[in-house]
């Protein structure tokens, strides 16, 4: 269940009174204001809202790549808002899988090497890493593209490699920032089907930012960012098509 009223408990992700301000010259921009959010394990949440409403900022805060001005974010019992830089870096490696709009694959590394990157931060042996990477690439149906460089892949394939990279270390949750934003409709549909599979078959928790209402419809819950806070827009019955 997803709640935005700040009254949830026993949540996987718990956000309370989240504020984020930016300074642009002499102007202070208040992007997020007292935002609350509770997300249970296995939820698939879409964030929508106009450009500049703070969707990506929220994702960055949840992923520990940005720090809030005020408020508290707790993930699986760890409060990340007061973690030091290095502790937060380690936390990210264990708990967060990122999927970006423009894929952000390392162009000089093969699909295999890109997917292996997060595993280099673990204590897995080379053989174990090979097994995990093979599994992740099989999940995204790219077992035959392991030695391909990003430039040798289509946009949809690149995003699938990026998803494999995001799930290979079995993180607590996935953060997807406009995962279909750079793809044609057909590829977008394939990616969304893949993300749905990750949620339904593998029990992954996914938080996704999108502009596309059709994409947002695939999520269990769609939340709108309005005036720096979240408003529930739609919730569909889990398992409904």
């Amino acid at each position: 269940m997803v709640r935005v009223d700040g009254n949830g408990n026993s949540s996987l992700i718990c956000v309370r009174g989240l504020d984020k301000k930016y300074q642009r010259g002499s102007e202070e921009i208040h992007v997020l204001q007292g935002l609350n959010l509770d997300v249970e394990k296995g939820e698939f949440v879409a964030f929508m809202g106009p450009s500049g409403s703070g969707k990506t900022t929220l994702l960055n805060l949840l992923g520990g790549v940005d720090v809030p001005t005020r408020g508290r974010i707790t993930v699986a019992g760890d409060e990340i808002t007061h973690m030091s830089g290095s502790k937060l870096t380690n936390w990210r490696a264990r708990h967060v899988g990122f999927v970006f709009q423009v894929f952000n694959l390392i162009p000089v590394l093969t699909a295999y090497q890109n997917v292996e990157l997060p595993l280099l931060l673990t204590k897995l042996s080379k053989a174990e890493r090979r097994k995990h990477v093979g599994t992740a690439l099989a999940v995204v149906d790219l077992s035959d593209r392991v030695d391909h460089y990003p430039r040798q892949l289509s946009g949809g394939q690149e995003q699938r490699v990026a998803i494999a990279r995001a799930i290979v270390s079995d993180p607590t949750f996935l953060l997807c920032d406009e995962p279909t934003g750079d793809l044609d409709r057909k590829s977008a549909d394939q990616i969304m089907t893949l993300i749905e599979r990750l949620v339904e078959e593998y029990g992954k928790t996914v938080l996704m930012v999108t502009h596309d209402p059709l994409v947002a419809k695939r999520a269990h819950t769609t939340l709108h960012l309005e005036k720096g806070a979240l408003v529930e827009a739609a919730t569909k019955e889990v398992g409904a098509s």
Partner: peptide, 14 residues
């Protein structure tokens, strides 16, 4: 810079 940021986001330290 984007590659570096991605690597950092994946959990590699400064």
């Amino acid at each position: 810079s984007r590659e570096i940021a991605t690597i950092r986001a994946l959990g590699f330290g400064a």
